[in-house]
Amino acid sequence: MSSAPPRVPPGAGVCAIGPDLWYRPEADGTVVVGLTDAAQRRAGALAHYRGPLPGRSFRAGEPALSLESEKWVGHLGLPVDGTVVATNPAAETDPGTINRDPYGAGWLYRMRPRVPADLEARRGPVL
């Protein structure tokens, strides 16, 4: 397990969504999504990250991306219905980035929610 604190604390406007994810709204209506520090600690040292395909739309919870640590694969879905805009290539190339900097360089993907209000409805505490 990764026990070191995150090197970069959450920035302004970063909110939890669901038990494992955070999101940060961008000016263009998209949101950046990542794994919370607590979730990356639970997962342990990540060996693989396969991001969701940019341009593809998913329903909330539908398996869209995967993470692997210690031979255990988590198949994760998007927190709300939406379309993936980008996947973080740095996290795919070096999944350890997610452990080292979960709120910064280790973001997972950027998406455009189908119904922006869905995010607000599911929003957790500000991190």
Binding site: E70, K71, W72, V73, G74, H75
Partner: peptide, 18 residues
């Protein structure tokens, strides 16, 4: 976390997923 071994030699591999 995931191997059964006899001495230092693996006799069973294991994995998981959601």
């Amino acid at each position: 976390p995931s191997d059964l071994v006899v001495g230092d030699r693996k006799v069973s591999g294991n994995a998981g997923g959601d």
